[in-house]
Protein backbone atom coordinates (compact mmCIF):
# COMPACT_ATOMS: atom_id res chain seq x y z
CA UNK A 1 0.00 0.00 0.00
CA UNK A 2 1.00 3.58 -0.61
CA UNK A 3 -0.31 7.10 -0.12
CA UNK A 4 -2.25 8.25 -3.18
CA UNK A 5 -0.83 11.12 -5.21
CA UNK A 6 -3.97 13.16 -4.49
CA UNK A 7 -2.84 13.58 -0.86
CA UNK A 8 0.10 15.52 0.61
CA UNK A 9 1.57 15.04 4.07
CA UNK A 10 2.23 18.32 5.85
CA UNK A 11 3.93 19.11 9.19
CA UNK A 12 4.07 22.30 11.22
CA UNK A 13 5.07 22.90 14.86
CA UNK A 14 4.41 19.31 15.95
CA UNK A 15 1.12 19.07 14.08
CA UNK A 16 0.91 16.54 11.24
CA UNK A 17 -1.79 16.66 8.61
CA UNK A 18 -2.85 14.87 5.49
CA UNK A 19 -4.09 17.41 2.96
CA UNK A 20 -6.13 16.32 -0.08
CA UNK A 21 -5.82 18.04 -3.44
CA UNK A 22 -8.95 19.51 -4.95
CA UNK A 23 -9.34 16.39 -7.08
CA UNK A 24 -9.41 13.94 -4.16
CA UNK A 25 -12.79 12.55 -3.21
CA UNK A 26 -12.25 13.70 0.39
CA UNK A 27 -12.47 17.41 1.24
CA UNK A 28 -11.48 17.38 4.94
CA UNK A 29 -8.16 17.00 6.75
CA UNK A 30 -6.62 14.19 8.75
CA UNK A 31 -4.76 15.66 11.74
CA UNK A 32 -2.51 14.08 14.30
CA UNK A 33 0.75 14.19 16.20
CA UNK A 34 4.26 13.12 15.24
CA UNK A 35 3.18 9.47 15.00
CA UNK A 36 0.85 10.33 12.13
CA UNK A 37 3.65 12.31 10.46
CA UNK A 38 6.06 9.39 10.62
CA UNK A 39 3.50 6.90 9.32
CA UNK A 40 2.63 9.25 6.44
CA UNK A 41 6.32 9.56 5.55
CA UNK A 42 6.62 5.74 5.51
CA UNK A 43 3.61 5.54 3.21
CA UNK A 44 5.26 7.72 0.57
CA UNK A 45 6.72 4.49 -0.85
CA UNK A 46 5.06 1.10 -1.38
CA UNK A 47 4.99 -0.76 1.94
CA UNK A 48 2.95 -3.08 4.16
CA UNK A 49 1.38 -2.62 7.56
CA UNK A 50 3.95 -5.03 9.07
CA UNK A 51 6.81 -2.99 7.57
CA UNK A 52 5.35 0.22 8.94
CA UNK A 53 5.10 -1.34 12.42
CA UNK A 54 8.71 -2.59 12.18
CA UNK A 55 9.96 0.84 11.11
CA UNK A 56 8.06 2.50 13.96
CA UNK A 57 9.49 0.00 16.46
CA UNK A 58 12.98 0.90 15.32
CA UNK A 59 12.25 4.57 15.80
CA UNK A 60 10.14 4.74 18.97
CA UNK A 61 10.69 3.24 22.41
CA UNK A 62 7.25 1.70 22.93
CA UNK A 63 5.79 -1.83 23.22
CA UNK A 64 5.05 -3.54 19.92
CA UNK A 65 1.35 -4.02 20.68
CA UNK A 66 0.95 -0.29 21.37
CA UNK A 67 2.70 0.64 18.14
CA UNK A 68 0.77 -1.95 16.14
CA UNK A 69 -2.49 -0.54 17.52
CA UNK A 70 -1.49 3.04 16.61
CA UNK A 71 -0.47 2.00 13.11
CA UNK A 72 -3.72 0.09 12.59
CA UNK A 73 -5.75 3.09 13.76
CA UNK A 74 -3.96 5.47 11.38
CA UNK A 75 -4.15 3.10 8.43
CA UNK A 76 -7.86 2.54 9.04
CA UNK A 77 -8.40 6.30 9.10
CA UNK A 78 -6.43 6.76 5.86
CA UNK A 79 -8.32 3.90 4.24
CA UNK A 80 -11.59 5.48 5.37
CA UNK A 81 -10.89 8.72 3.49
CA UNK A 82 -9.65 6.92 0.40
CA UNK A 83 -6.03 8.03 0.81
CA UNK A 84 -4.38 4.66 0.18
CA UNK A 85 -3.54 2.87 -3.04
CA UNK A 86 -3.82 -0.85 -2.22
Amino acid sequence: MKLKQEFIAYDTEGLSMLVPTGSAGFAGLVQGNRTLGVILSLLQAETTEAEVVAAMLARFDAPEDVIAKDVRRVIDALRGVGALDE
Binding site: Q5, E6, I8, Y10, T12, E13, G14, L15, M17, V19, P20, T21, G22, S23, G28, L29, Q31
Partner: peptide
Protein backbone atom coordinates in the same frame (compact mmCIF):
# COMPACT_ATOMS: atom_id res chain seq x y z
CA UNK B 1 -2.56 32.38 18.02
CA UNK B 2 0.29 30.30 16.63
CA UNK B 3 0.77 28.95 13.12
CA UNK B 4 -0.21 25.44 14.17
CA UNK B 5 -3.39 26.76 15.75
CA UNK B 6 -4.31 28.66 12.61
CA UNK B 7 -3.28 26.12 10.01
CA UNK B 8 -6.15 23.60 10.21
CA UNK B 9 -8.73 26.27 9.46
CA UNK B 10 -6.55 28.03 6.87
CA UNK B 11 -6.18 24.72 5.03
CA UNK B 12 -9.97 24.48 4.91
CA UNK B 13 -10.41 28.04 3.69
CA UNK B 14 -7.63 28.22 1.10
CA UNK B 15 -8.32 27.07 -2.44
CA UNK B 16 -6.77 23.61 -2.69
CA UNK B 17 -5.66 22.97 -6.25
CA UNK B 18 -6.33 19.67 -7.98
CA UNK B 19 -2.71 19.59 -9.12
CA UNK B 20 -0.29 18.12 -6.57
CA UNK B 21 2.56 20.56 -7.35
CA UNK B 22 0.20 23.52 -7.03
CA UNK B 23 -1.09 22.18 -3.69
CA UNK B 24 2.49 21.74 -2.44
CA UNK B 25 3.17 25.35 -3.44
CA UNK B 26 0.01 26.43 -1.60
CA UNK B 27 1.26 24.73 1.59
Amino acid sequence: ITASQAMPLLLQQVYRPADQAALAATL
